[in-house]
């Protein structure tokens, strides 16, 4: 990559993190104005994990996550309009308004869903990787989860099979230190979450989830290894969520001081300072970027408000489908080799 392209890629990391932050601030405001309903789980504070890890993948690698999914979807390329319209329950939303905040799906960006039952999507992530292995593709699946998900049964079953069958999947535990309102140390007998991987014979590592470059480089490196030698990885991304578990959570389980301490490691301010120091960005550039992003976030609200509600028949249309040949599942990668049999 030439130096200009490298520079742009670095700036894009900052841009994408800031876009998630401003989008969610806007969503939070709309929630408080009661323009949107249901649950709203904000990703604010954790942006470097989604943005960095997506930057370390190829676009057709699969991505699947839990209900705190706005960040991953936006990082993968979903537009703010369809993201905001989804939480407004509009037909123009990424899931046609049928999914909501916790169920963002984006097929064109290989974003295989936000899934709202804690741990329930981890076997699905293993299944996506299983499909790649079955088809002899060198796709990697990124399966994200919170630290609360490591204590539920489906986590164990999925990681066990992924380890057994050497599935090409990176399980990323976004350790934001709280399972809803319960501190990780109160629900996990191991001192270190990363140590869970050993039980499944998995390569395991800790990643600074507040440093977007480190996240990107780690994931790019691990993806490269998996493409050569299919196997699962267990990665603990150490991060912190600033907001409550969901909007109804006042966060009484932590002190103000603790929160402020973590905000000093803010992934956006940190990386902005790095880019300025390296001469890749000026304070004016940043302000311009922020203004542009805020305008996009505001425009997404307008777009959502002006969009139509989904028609009532849509829900029946998508309960069961007629089996037909017009539906094309995600195609196998063209370079797929048939000589890569599934070993079990």
């Amino acid at each position: 990559m030439d130096s200009e392209a490298t520079k742009q890629a670095e700036i894009k990391l900052l841009y994408d993190m800031l876009a998630i932050r401003r989008f969610e601030e806007k969503a939070q405001q709309q929630y408080q104005m009661q323009k949107i309903g249901g649950f709203l789980h904000l990703y604010i504070g954790q942006e470097a994990v989604a943005v960095g890890s997506v930057a370390g993948t190829k676009h057709d690698d699969y991505l699947i996550t839990a209900y705190r999914d706005h960040g991953h979807a936006l990082a993968r390329g979903m537009g703010m309009n369809e993201a905001m319209a989804e939480i407004f329950g509009k037909a123009t939303g990424c899931s046609k308004g049928l999914g909501g905040s916790m169920h963002y799906f984006d097929r064109k960006n290989n974003m295989m869903g936000g899934h709202a039952i804690v741990g329930g999507h981890i076997p699905l992530g293993a299944g996506l990787a299983f499909a790649s292995r079955y088809r002899g593709e060198d796709r990697v699946t990124l399966c994200y989860m919170g630290d609360g998900a490591i204590n539920i049964g489906s986590f164990h079953e999925a990681l066990n099979m992924a380890g057994l069958w050497k599935l090409p999947v990176i399980f990323i535990c976004e350790n934001n230190q709280f399972a809803m309102g319960t501190a990780a140390t109160r629900s996990n007998p191991l001192k270190e979450i990363v140590d869970r991987g050993a039980g499944y014979n998995m390569q395991s590592l800790i990643m600074d989830g507040m440093d977007v470059r480190k996240v990107r480089d780690t994931i790019a490196d691990v993806c490269g290894k998996i493409r050569k030698d299919p196997q699962p990885y267990w990665i603990e991304a150490r991060t912190y969520r600033y907001r409550g578990h969901s909007m109804s959570d006042p966060g009484t389980y932590r002190t103000k001081e603790e929160l402020e301490k973590h905000k000093k490691d803010d992934p956006i301010t940190q990386f902005k300072a790095v880019l300025i120091k390296e001469g890749l960005l000026s304070e004016e550039d940043f302000k311009r970027m922020d203004t542009e992003i805020k305008a996009l976030a505001a425009a997404s609200v307008k777009f959502a408000e002006e969009s139509d509600e989904p028609a009532e028949e849509e829900v029946f249309r998508y309960t069961t489908v007629e089996t037909d040949t017009s539906y094309k599942p995600i195609p196998t990668r063209p370079e797929t080799s048939k000589e890569n049999p599934f070993h079990c």
């Binding site: 295989m112 099979m161 079990c344």
Partner: peptide, 24 residues
């Protein structure tokens, strides 16, 4: 490759099936 013994883990292999079905 086509006929696969799974561990005793119904939630795991039922879910792996669902994930694999999502992509075809």
């Amino acid at each position: 490759k086509r006929v696969i013994d799974a561990p005793i883990a119904e939630s795991g292999f039922a879910g792996i099936g669902c994930g694999a079905a999502m992509v075809g």
